[in-house]
């Protein structure tokens, strides 16, 4: 039995310790906003925060995370969609199919937490998630907008 702290709540989960964090979040805890894309840490659709750091949860065994570590998923990024990154995403109508966007938003939020005023180059090298619909230019613009909003607010 492992204990995981997800979005501020402690969950007891009974799984094989090798189970990737992604599948524990989706199947045991029941939060499906975090997506399965590739299973090999290539696409970033599974990005969550572990103690504020962006982590590709498809390739992290649940046994590598302790109860003391704070896991945040897209559902816990803000109570009401009010995180500056989410607001910027809505303002610029970033998503197309939307499947990769939870991971994109989590990657962007982690980037801004570490680097509140990223340059364009910082954004372009810092967001490495795959989007097949091709929302990249709006992703870039939305991160810039969120950075500005954060500074203003």
């Amino acid at each position: 039995m492992a204990k995981l702290t997800v979005n501020g709540r402690v969950h007891d989960v009974a799984v094989d310790p090798e189970t990737p964090l992604l599948w524990v979040i989706r199947e045991q805890i029941g939060l499906t906003g975090t997506k399965y894309g590739c299973g090999v840490a290539q696409c970033g659709a599974c990005t969550v925060h572990v103690d504020g750091q962006a982590v590709r949860s498809c390739s992290l065994p649940v046994s590598a995370v302790t109860e003391a570590q704070k896991i945040t998923t897209i559902e816990g990024l803000s109570p009401d969609g009010g995180h500056p990154v989410q607001k910027a995403w809505v303002a610029l109508d970033v998503p197309q199919c939307g499947y990769c966007q939870s991971g994109m938003i989590m990657a962007a939020a982690a980037l801004l937490a570490e680097n509140p005023k990223p340059s364009v180059a910082d954004i372009r090298s810092g967001i490495t998630n795959i989007c097949r619909c091709g929302t990249y230019n709006r992703v870039q613009a939305a991160v810039q907008r969120a950075a500005g909003t954060s500074a203003a607010g």
């Binding site: 897209i74 969609g81 109508d93 998503p95």
Partner: peptide
Amino acid sequence: PRLDTVDKTNG
């Protein structure tokens, strides 16, 4: 704006 954006930003 699209009608389906918000739910794609909050999971």
